[in-house]
C-alpha cells in the first residue's frame, strides 16, 4: 500500500509538469508579456517605457527559457520559466499584480472557502442520499416518477437562478439574513446559511437522480433477491443491504471532490461576497491578473491529483477485495 502511494505520488510529477507547461505556453508563449502589459495599461497610447517598467516591476523582463547573458546556473534560473513556473512546485507563488503575496492570500482565504464548501458537501450528500433512497423505496409509483421529473426540472434551472432567486426571496423579501458579506467566528453562520442552503438545493436535481439510479441498479442484483427470499422486509433490504452496497460507488465518487473543496465555489462566493478562494479566482480573472490565475491552476491540479489518490485508497477501505499493488 505504501509503495503504491509513493508510486502514485511520483506519477503525479509528470502530470504537474504537463500542467505547468500548458499554463506556461498559454500565459507566456501565446501572449508575450508585452501583450499582457498592453492589456493592463490600456491597449492604445501606451509608451514603450511604460511597458518596460511594468514588466520590470513584475519580473517579466527576463528571457523566456534561457538567459544567455547570465553565467552558470543563472542561465536557467534567471528566466521567466524558472521564476514563474518552476517555483510553483515549492508553492512559491510570488506576488499578484497589486503587489500582494499570493501565498499569503491563499492561506487566509482558505478558511472562508472551506466554511462554505464543507457544509454544502456534507449536507448535500446527506440530503441527496436520503431523497434517492426514498425514490428507490417508492420506485415505480407516482412518488418516484414525479420525483424524477422534479429532479430533471431542477437540473434544468440555471445555478445562477437559485442564487439570485434565493437572495431575492430570503434576504430582500423576508429580510432573514444579509444579502452578502462575511464575518469571522460564530458570526459567519448568519452569512453562510443562505449560500449553503442554495448550494444544497442547486445540487439536488443531478445528485438525487444519479444516486437513485445507483440504488435502482443495486436493487436488481442477486443478493437483494436472496435477502427478499429469506423473508426480510423491504425496508430492511433497502436500508441495510442496498444502502450499504450503494454507498460504495457514491462515497468513492464523492471522495474525488474533497480536496477540491479547498478551491471554494466560484459563483456563490462572488455572489455572496465571501472572501474565499473562489471569489479570489473570479476577481483575478476579471482583473486579468495572470499570476493569480496561474497559481490557482497549479493548486487546482495538485488537489485534483490528491483527489484521485484518495479515491483509490478509499476503494480499498470500503471494499477489502480490492488490493492496490
Amino acid at each position: 500500500m505504501t509503495a503504491y502511494i509513493i508510486r502514485r505520488i511520483l506519477y503525479a510529477i509528470p502530470i504537474l509538469i504537463g500542467v505547468n507547461l500548458i499554463t506556461f505556453a498559454l500565459f507566456f508563449l501565446v501572449n508575450t508579456p508585452d501583450d499582457m502589459a498592453r492589456m493592463q495599461l490600456g491597449a492604445k497610447r501606451v509608451t514603450a517605457e511604460a511597458i518596460e517598467k511594468w514588466k520590470a516591476e513584475r519580473g517579466y523582463d527576463k528571457p523566456m527559457l534561457y538567459n544567455g547573458s547570465a553565467g552558470g546556473t543563472a542561465a536557467i534560473t534567471d528566466t521567466i520559466f524558472f521564476e514563474k513556473s518552476v517555483k510553483l512546485f515549492v508553492f512559491d507563488f510570488g506576488n499578484a499584480d497589486d503587489g500582494r503575496n499570493i501565498g499569503y492570500e491563499i492561506a487566509t482565504r482558505m478558511g472562508p472557502s472551506l466554511a462554505l464548501a464543507i457544509p454544502v458537501f456534507m449536507v448535500g450528500l446527506a440530503v441527496n442520499i436520503t431523497l434517492a433512497l426514498l425514490m428507490a423505496f417508492f420506485r415505480a409509483t407516482y412518488l418516484d416518477v414525479w420525483g424524477v421529473v422534479l429532479c430533471v426540472a431542477m437540473m434544468s434551472i440555471s445555478g445562477l437562478f437559485y442564487i439570485i432567486g434565493g437572495q431575492y426571496l430570503v434576504s430582500k423579501l423576508w429580510n432573514l439574513v444579509p444579502i452578502s458579506g462575511y464575518a469571522g467566528g460564530v458570526d459567519s453562520v448568519r452569512f453562510l446559511i443562505l449560500p449553503v442552503l442554495i448550494g444544497v438545493i442547486g445540487g439536488i436535481g443531478s445528485g438525487a437522480r444519479w444516486y437513485r439510479s445507483i440504488f435502482i441498479e443495486e436493487i436488481g442484483k442477486d443478493y437483494v433477491r436472496t435477502a427478499r427470499a429469506k423473508g426480510l422486509s423491504e425496508a430492511t433490504v433497502l436500508f441495510r443491504h442496498v444502502l450499504r452496497n450503494g454507498m460504495i460507488p457514491i462515497l468513492t465518487g464523492a471522495v474525488v471532490v474533497i480536496p477540491l473543496l479547498f478551491m471554494g465555489s466560484l459563483i456563490s462566493e462572488s455572489f455572496f461576497g465571501i472572501p474565499g478562494l473562489g471569489s479570489y479566482t473570479i476577481d483575478a480573472i476579471q482583473a486579468q491578473d495572470f499570476a493569480v490565475v496561474r497559481s490557482m491552476v497549479f493548486i487546482g491540479s495538485v488537489l485534483y491529483i490528491a483527489g484521485l489518490l484518495l479515491t483509490d485508497i478509499s476503494y480499498t477501505l470500503v471494499d477489502p477485495r480490492i488490493r492496490l499493488e
Binding site: M39, V293, V297, S301
Partner: peptide
C-alpha cells in the same frame, strides 16, 4: 493532465488569451 486543471480556469485562461489576441 487536462482534467486536472480546473475547467473554469482552463477556459478562462484560454479565453483571456484569445481576448488579448483579438485586442492586439
Amino acid at each position: 493532465t487536462l482534467n486536472s486543471i480546473p475547467a473554469v480556469l482552463l477556459i478562462a485562461a484560454a479565453v483571456l488569451m484569445v481576448q488579448v489576441q483579438i485586442d492586439t
